[in-house]
Design a protein around this nucleic acid. Structure first.
Lengths: 118, 118
DNA sequence: CAGCATCCTATCGGATACTG
DNA sequence: CAGTATCCGATAGGATGCTG
């Protein structure tokens, strides 16, 4: 079996404390301004939001549109290419949902996050 | 769209510097002893190997079989449940492979890992 | 408004030594 | 052989303040 050498690559791109939430919002709302993202994700700082968006932008998952005006306006959206992640995200999400149930069966409810999950 | 809330869960379980390699080896070889895993992954330390295996074990992805004998013998394998991740891993791997090509088109070859990918 | 720069800390991961 | 314990450095992430 010569596969599974590059799923680490996918992992790298998705990892980051806020990437999941950011992607979720952008997939839901389509296009959002920087400030809208901030409001939608209350606990995130500007620094983190910028940083994570830049990484996603580098990987061509997210598009950054700057409007040259005062006050500034910048809009973020999922790229055409980024939509190709839909399958992967869905696969991961579905597995995640069922896995939570599985863990509950194993250890009982309300025990996630307590042990072993770093 | 009410989905994509839990793909973060899948992410958490797969994240860890060595989890991808460990899973890869176990999927390939089926069952491996602690020392075999060490040899198969030269740069990993015992501490890291133990730690990552314990996390995977907690999530019921990996099974730990202890043989009560001297010298000790412990074997690791993917659980029945763990095999259910196959779909997800494959989806991620396939996307990873194509994404590397995509990045090469965007930025040219040999430029991965240089920018933005944390 | 949408950031960047600076500083700080918490967590992750590595090196090394010891043990049943 | 298969770990555990301890220490230690690197890095991810957070708080705060400044700016075009």
């Amino acid at each position: 079996m010569e596969t599974y050498c590059k799923f680490e690559t996918a992992l790298d791109i998705l990892v980051g404390k806020w990437k999941p939430v950011i992607l979720l919002r952008l997939f839901e709302h389509g296009t959002m301004r920087f400030s809208e993202l901030q409001k939608a994700i209350p606990d995130i700082t500007k620094k983190m939001l910028t940083q994570q968006l830049r990484e996603l932008e580098y990987h061509d998952i997210v598009h950054r549109e700057v409007y040259q005006q005062v006050p500034p306006k910048v809009e973020y959206s999922i790229t055409e290419y980024g939509r190709g992640m839909h399958t992967v995200l869905k696969a991961m999400n579905d597995w995640g949902v069922s896995h939570i149930e599985h863990l509950n069966e194993l250890y009982g409810e309300n025990r996630l996050k307590e042990k072993g999950s770093r």
